[in-house]
Simulated assay, not measured.
Amino acid sequence: MLKGISPLLNADVLYALRAMGHGDDLIICDTNFPADSVARQTRLGRLLRIDNVTAGEAAAAILSLYPLDSFVDDAAARMEIVGNPTEIPAVQQEVQRAIDAAEGRSWPMVGVERYAFYERAKQAYCVVQTGERRFYGCFALRKGVIAPDAA
């Protein structure tokens, strides 16, 4: 255990968060996502896991350390529901609240069509699979920067 770091963030996830650079994507996915096969195509090349938690809990833990990219419009994205892309299910609302809380302001996620989301995930730095069983618990978060301390 480390003070100030969520116990949900295991050593493998902490390594990936630290290793990622500005503009790298991290995918948070549910249990139905083809996580292992997609993760093998990412920069890290292997699947990371935060088991037995919801996507919202995992997002809150990750975002406690991970800045979002303020230079792009799609730094926070969600997989759209097939046939109803504007619907925002409860799992996505929970992750939206985690994003807004971490950033201290409203930061709306953009929707990404299912197969386009798979392609974005393959280009990501890593995939973190959660224990989320609700459908459409899949998100892309693009890493931003931490500004230097004021002089």
Results as ranks from 00 to 15, higher is better:
residue 18 R to M: 09
residue 28 I to H: 03
residue 20 M to L: 03
residue 33 F to E: 07
residue 33 F to D: 07
residue 32 N to Y: 14
residue 26 L to R: 06
residue 30 D to C: 11
residue 28 I to D: 06
residue 36 D to F: 12
residue 41 Q to M: 12
residue 16 A to G: 01
residue 27 I to A: 04
residue 38 V to G: 11
residue 25 D to L: 13
residue 22 H to A: 09
residue 24 D to R: 02
residue 17 L to I: 05
residue 22 H to I: 08
residue 31 T to R: 15
residue 37 S to D: 13
residue 25 D to H: 09
residue 36 D to H: 13
residue 27 I to E: 07
residue 19 A to D: 08
residue 19 A to S: 14
residue 31 T to I: 14
residue 28 I to K: 03
residue 17 L to Q: 02
residue 32 N to S: 14
residue 27 I to D: 09
residue 13 V to E: 11
residue 35 A to I: 06
residue 30 D to L: 08
residue 19 A to W: 00
residue 23 G to F: 05
residue 22 H to L: 12
residue 15 Y to T: 03
residue 38 V to D: 07
residue 22 H to P: 06
residue 38 V to A: 11
residue 22 H to W: 13
residue 18 R to W: 08
residue 18 R to Y: 13
residue 16 A to N: 01
residue 31 T to S: 15
residue 33 F to V: 05
residue 11 A to I: 00
residue 30 D to E: 05
residue 17 L to P: 02
residue 37 S to N: 08
residue 39 A to V: 04
residue 28 I to M: 05
residue 33 F to L: 11
residue 13 V to D: 10
residue 32 N to V: 08
residue 25 D to P: 02
residue 32 N to G: 15
residue 40 R to V: 05
residue 12 D to T: 01
residue 39 A to R: 07
residue 25 D to V: 04
residue 31 T to D: 07
residue 19 A to K: 10
residue 34 P to D: 10
residue 26 L to I: 09
residue 32 N to P: 01
residue 20 M to E: 09
residue 40 R to S: 15
residue 26 L to H: 07
residue 24 D to A: 07
residue 25 D to G: 12
residue 25 D to Q: 10
residue 12 D to Y: 00
residue 24 D to K: 02
residue 19 A to H: 04
residue 40 R to D: 09
residue 26 L to D: 01
residue 37 S to A: 14
residue 24 D to E: 13
residue 34 P to R: 11
residue 37 S to V: 14
residue 33 F to P: 03
residue 24 D to I: 02
residue 37 S to C: 10
residue 41 Q to N: 09
residue 23 G to R: 07
residue 28 I to E: 01
residue 14 L to N: 04
residue 17 L to M: 03
residue 15 Y to L: 03
residue 27 I to L: 10
residue 18 R to N: 13
residue 22 H to T: 12
residue 40 R to N: 09
residue 38 V to L: 12
residue 25 D to W: 13
residue 13 V to T: 03
residue 32 N to Q: 13
residue 26 L to M: 12
residue 29 C to S: 15
residue 31 T to P: 00
residue 18 R to Q: 11
residue 28 I to N: 05
residue 11 A to E: 11
residue 27 I to S: 04
residue 28 I to A: 10
residue 13 V to F: 05
residue 13 V to C: 04
residue 30 D to T: 09
residue 28 I to T: 02
residue 14 L to T: 01
residue 14 L to P: 02
residue 19 A to N: 06
residue 29 C to K: 05
residue 15 Y to G: 03
residue 34 P to W: 11
residue 36 D to V: 08
residue 38 V to W: 08
residue 21 G to N: 15
residue 15 Y to V: 00
residue 37 S to L: 13
residue 21 G to K: 14
residue 12 D to Q: 13
residue 20 M to Y: 05
residue 37 S to G: 02
residue 25 D to N: 14
residue 18 R to V: 10
residue 14 L to G: 03
residue 20 M to T: 03
residue 20 M to C: 04
residue 15 Y to C: 00
residue 39 A to Q: 06
residue 30 D to A: 12
residue 36 D to Y: 13
residue 33 F to C: 10
residue 20 M to I: 03
residue 41 Q to K: 15
residue 14 L to E: 06
